[in-house]
C-alpha cells in the first residue's frame, strides 16, 4: 500500500486525443479538450505515481466511495 500523497491525478482516462493530421470538427476538439462525463460511480482515470516511480497508471475508482476496482498500466486498453 502506498500513501495517497505520492499520487497525482491525471483526469478521465477514456478521453482520446484525435489522431494527428486527421481533419476533425470543432466539436470533436471541444470534446477532447473540455467536455467530460464526470459521472458518479465507476470512473476510469489516470494517476501518476509522482513522488515514487513516476509511472502513469489507469485506475477504475468509484467517485462516490473511492473504492478501487481495477488498475492497468498506462499502455493497456480499458476492456
Amino acid at each position: 500500500m502506498r500513501s495517497q500523497n505520492e499520487f497525482s491525478y491525471g483526469g478521465d482516462a477514456t478521453v482520446k486525443r484525435p489522431e494527428l493530421g486527421k481533419e476533425i470538427s470543432d466539436q470533436d476538439w471541444d470534446n477532447f479538450v473540455y467536455n467530460r462525463k464526470s459521472l458518479r460511480g465507476k470512473h476510469w482515470e489516470l494517476w501518476q505515481h509522482l513522488s515514487g516511480c513516476r509511472q502513469w497508471i489507469k485506475v477504475q475508482r468509484d467517485t462516490a466511495t473511492h473504492e478501487i476496482f481495477k488498475t492497468l498500466k498506462a499502455n493497456e486498453d480499458i476492456s
Binding site: 483526469g11 471541444d30 473540455y34 467530460r36 462525463k37 464526470s38 459521472l39 458518479r40
Partner: peptide, 14 residues
C-alpha cells in the same frame, strides 16, 4: 453532470 447525462449532454465540467 448527473442530470446532464439524463439529457445526453456532456458539459465542460468535472
Amino acid at each position: 453532470n448527473i442530470l446532464a447525462e439524463k439529457l445526453n449532454m456532456t458539459l465542460p465540467i468535472e
